[in-house]
């Protein structure tokens, strides 16, 4: 530590003694000292790509503030190359995740809820800071998010009964339709609900076996980046969920135009951006979820977000006797 830094730390220590909550100070310059005399340990928020926590390829960060404009942390400002890397990771993970049994996916999603419950306090704090809510209101949001994971965990092995089934046909055939995941879903997470909103758009996409590249709420990405730590420790295979923080207007276009992305959720895009992205997405016929599908994140969702990312496979199988011997096969 240089002499100057030392002086700065001492000064910060003094400040901390007189004013324990030295909010708004640029903690990047010198470590703050907490009320108990410890140096505060500040968290470096990182992206979540392929099960790893890289910094942005571009090396950029941006300042994240709470609702009153006080500095909270620096978040990585992801570039289009980070988006590209995330798509590669998502594609790599798709085979394993879509091939896992629905029952297994349900267990994994439930595990996410378990892990989240264990870190409830952290998320309550982050959501309260990010959205300017009281702790009680923030706790409601976090609880609702945990419950939403559980809800979608239950749906993994039931959605096929709703979206598929046996079709009556005029011939000696079984005709069965089964829903299959569409592939990689790019998600622009809602800007108005940094955590519950994110979970509400993320969980349905992965519940049905898709893999996701999600762009967190631009002004409040910290709960999302912390969610990555939960996902990394809850049996979700690396690459199934990839979380980027940055500008929707910068990351949206390369994702919408990407030929290896199969669906895009434009919830977090404003009207002008959504229009532009929908045009770009038409090039390889992506499934598009337009903004405004959900207006209130607190209300229990319907199935539309799960059904949006499913393709239907229909199989014809002959029934009845096929030969002189009377065999059914």
């Amino acid at each position: 530590m240089s002499e100057q830094d030392e002086r700065a730390t001492k000064a910060a220590g003094k400040a901390a003694k007189t004013k324990p909550k030295a909010k708004g100070a640029k903690a990047g310059a010198a470590a703050e000292v907490t009320a108990t005399g410890r140096l505060s340990v500040l968290k470096t928020y990182k992206l979540f790509v392929g099960g790893k926590f890289p910094r942005s390829e571009s090396g950029r960060v941006y300042e994240v503030t709470d609702s009153e404009g006080n500095w909270l942390a620096n978040a990585p400002l992801a570039s289009r190359k980070d988006a590209r890397d995330a798509v590669v990771a998502a594609r790599k993970a798709f085979g394993g995740w879509s091939g896992a049994t629905a029952y297994n996916r349900g267990q994994v999603l439930y595990r996410v809820a378990e892990m989240l419950e264990g870190r409830r306090e952290q998320f309550v704090g982050e959501v309260a800071d990010a959205e300017g809510l009281s702790r009680a209101k923030a706790a409601e949001q976090v609880d609702a998010a945990v419950d939403r994971w559980v809800w979608y965990a239950g749906w993994t092995d039931k959605v096929a009964q709703v979206a598929g089934g046996a079709n009556p046909v005029a011939g000696p055939y079984f005709n069965l339709s089964t829903p299959e995941p569409t592939g990689i879903v790019a998600v622009l997470a809602p800007q108005d609900s940094s955590f519950l909103g994110l979970v509400s758009v993320l969980a349905p996409a992965i519940a049905t076996g898709n893999t996701v590249v999600a762009v967190a709420a631009e002004r409040a990405p910290l709960p999302a980046l912390s969610l990555a730590e939960v996902l990394a420790t809850s049996d979700v295979p690396g690459g199934v969920v990839n979380l980027l923080s940055g500008r929707a207007a910068e990351l949206g276009p390369p994702l919408a135009a990407h030929q290896d992305v199969n669906a895009i959720d434009l919830t977090g895009a404003d009207a002008e951006l959504a229009r532009e992205l929908e045009i770009a997405a038409a090039d390889n016929l992506k499934r598009v979820v337009r903004p405004g599908l959900t207006s209130d994140w607190a209300v229990e969702p319907g199935l539309e977000r799960m059904l949006a990312y499913l393709e239907t496979k229909t199989v014809w199988h002959p029934t009845g006797s096929l030969g002189a011997a009377g065999s059914a096969y």
Partner: peptide
């Protein structure tokens, strides 16, 4: 093309 390609192509 300016668009990222994928293994499908």
């Amino acid at each position: 093309t300016g668009r990222y390609s994928g293994p499908d192509y």
